[in-house]
Measured scan of single mutants.
Amino acid sequence: NKFNKEMRNAYWEILHLPNLNEEQKNAFIQSLYDDPSQSANLLAEAKKLNDAQA
């Protein structure tokens, strides 16, 4: 299933973003579980936030 793979990839990438705190990571990961079809968008948002907090 495409979403499972996308979701897993997004999950791991978000988990390893160095500039997000636990609360931010948890919020993105919760959103992933709530709507796996948004994995790519959530990952993009997480990366933007990560870069902004660098």
Rank of each mutant, 00 (worst) to 15 (best):
N4Y: 13
E13T: 12
I14E: 00
N19F: 12
A54T: 02
F28W: 06
A27R: 07
K2F: 11
I14A: 01
L49F: 15
L42V: 11
E23G: 05
Y11L: 09
K5P: 10
H16M: 05
N4K: 01
N41Y: 07
E6Y: 01
L32Q: 03
A44H: 05
K48Y: 13
Y11R: 07
K25E: 04
K47L: 06
A44L: 10
A46V: 07
L20G: 00
R8A: 14
E45P: 01
A54V: 11
A54D: 11
N21Q: 10
K2S: 14
L43S: 11
Q38P: 10
F3Y: 02
A44V: 06
S39A: 11
K25S: 05
E6L: 07
D34V: 08
K5F: 00
N50G: 06
F3Q: 15
P36N: 05
L49E: 08
K2E: 15
H16Y: 06
N26V: 14
D51M: 11
N9V: 13
I29G: 15
K5W: 01
R8V: 11
N4P: 15
Q38M: 09
A40G: 07
N9Q: 14
K2Q: 14
K25Y: 07
S39G: 03
L15R: 05
Y33R: 05
Q38E: 07
W12A: 02
N50Q: 13
N26F: 13
E6P: 01
K25N: 04
Y11A: 08
K47N: 06
L49A: 09
N50P: 03
E22N: 13
A27G: 06
S37L: 10
H16F: 13
A44D: 07
L43R: 11
K2T: 01
D35V: 08
I29K: 13
E23Q: 12
N21Y: 08
K5L: 00
A40V: 11
L32I: 06
F3L: 15
L17T: 04
Q24N: 06
K48V: 13
E22T: 13
N4S: 03
Y33G: 02
M7K: 00
R8M: 15
A44R: 07
S37D: 07
L49T: 13
E45A: 09
I14D: 00
E23L: 15
A44I: 11
N41K: 07
F28R: 05
F3W: 05
E13I: 08
D51Y: 12
I14P: 00
Y33V: 09
Q38Y: 09
D34G: 13
P18E: 15
Q53D: 09
Q30F: 09
E45Y: 08
Y11F: 05
K25A: 11
N50V: 02
L42K: 12
I29Q: 04
A27P: 05
L17F: 06
L43I: 02
N4F: 09
L32V: 08
F28Q: 03
L42W: 14
A10G: 00
N1H: 09
Q24E: 05
L32M: 07
D34I: 14
N4T: 04
A27F: 11
Q38W: 05
N19R: 06
N26P: 03
N9G: 02
R8N: 12
N50H: 09
L43W: 02
N19T: 10
A44Y: 06
A52G: 11
S39R: 06
A40K: 12
K2L: 06
K48W: 08
A10M: 04
N50D: 13
Q38V: 08
E13L: 10
A27H: 11
A52R: 11
D34T: 13
N26Y: 14
L42P: 03
K5V: 01
I14F: 04
D35P: 02
A52T: 12
L20V: 10
N19P: 00
E23K: 12
L17Y: 05
K25H: 12
N4H: 09
Q24G: 05
N21G: 08
Q53M: 09
Q24H: 09
A40P: 12
P18N: 14
E22I: 10
N41P: 15
A52D: 08
D51K: 09
I14G: 01
L32G: 01
A40Q: 10
P18S: 14
L49G: 11
E45Q: 12
E22M: 11
S37K: 12
E23F: 14
H16S: 06
A52E: 09
L15D: 02
A10N: 02
K2G: 15
D51L: 09
Q30Y: 13
Y11Q: 05
A54Y: 11
K48L: 08
F28T: 10
K25M: 11
N19A: 04
Q53Y: 05
A40I: 13
D51S: 13
N1L: 01
L17A: 07
I14H: 00
N21W: 11
A10Y: 01
A46P: 00
F3N: 15
L20W: 00
D34P: 06
I14W: 00
Q30P: 01
A40N: 12
D34A: 10
S37R: 09
Q38T: 11
P18K: 04
Y33D: 01
Q53I: 08
A46L: 02
Y33T: 03
K5I: 01
F28P: 00
E22K: 09
S39N: 03
W12I: 04
L32F: 03
Q24P: 02
S37E: 04
F3E: 15
L42H: 07
Q24W: 03
W12V: 03
P36S: 04
L42S: 06
L49D: 13
N19E: 10
Q53L: 12
P18W: 14
